[in-house]
Design a protein around this nucleic acid. Structure first.
Lengths: 138, 138
DNA sequence: TACTGAACGATAATATTTATCGTTTATACT
DNA sequence: AGTATAAACGATAAATATTATCGTTCAGTA
């Protein structure tokens, strides 16, 4: 499993240098729960390396995400995106080119629970992103 | 169905005025396919109302989304969010307070296809957002 | 038709992310 | 270990994206 692998090994696999900043960033992030923003990560890492730059945090978060070490919560498209398609459907998102394509709920063929989920969360609808590689990028 | 309802009625239901800008914006957006950004919508609407302001476009897109007329493609959290939880899980997103909570794949109890989807899209993984109202906001 | 609050346009402000560039550091190779 | 080189760093400017402000205009209602 990724988290049990030594950091040095992770870096070698991804062809990146083992720097002090990178290592501390990795260790700090591993202890963070929930869904922190880059600013929140920055605030935490600053406690260990007060001189670290926000740019370094951004650059390394991107590296970690690209390497599959950590994951981004929902695909980030740089700006708000709206859709006018009012038929029940979901999205296929290409992890290379970020293209979004609709897929009908039936074609996706996914079965889901209705009603309440653990914690008393009241379900309105499901929004499914199928992450993968589109035909063009394969 | 929403799209067949007259615009005037839509506005009355949501307690907003029927302005020229709002109406044109709505009509233009209805004809747009895919997943346009506010800038793309702005560019289109400018052809019909050259004097329209970008701020008006933003304000009304938000109104439309809040009213459920249109929908945003994936929940927009203002900034990038990462997660370190490496267990298979998905997210419950509260449509009121925007809080994100993890839910295990098994608890969600959803069955999904593997392999290829229509269009030759190669599936890597599924990212499911359960949209609804959290216990606090109910 | 006149009143009033909502909406508009222009634009300043804020927030987020990326790019630039001079300096420092990790790595590979003597 | 010493050194060359490319990668990474920090500081900060720039680019993007979004929201707030405010004076003016317009839609809904009396």
């Amino acid at each position: 499993m990724i988290s049990s692998k030594p950091f040095r090994e992770l870096c070698q696999e991804n062809g990146i240098a083992v720097t002090h900043q990178r290592q501390v960033l990795y260790e700090v992030m591993k202890t963070m729960h929930g869904h922190p923003s880059p600013e929140e990560v920055y605030a935490r890492v600053k406690k260990k390396i007060p001189a670290i730059s926000l740019a370094t945090v951004y650059k390394n978060i991107h590296l970690f995400v690209e390497s599959g070490v950590f994951r981004e919560v929902s695909m980030h498209h740089g700006s708000l995106r709206v859709e006018m398609n009012d038929e029940a459907h979901h999205h296929m998102v290409c992890s290379k080119c970020k293209a979004i394509t609709d897929i009908g709920e039936k074609e996706l063929g996914l079965v889901s629970k209705k009603g309440k989920l653990p914690g008393g969360f009241l379900v309105e609808r499901y929004a499914v992103d199928v992450i993968g590689i589109c035909a063009k990028c394969q």
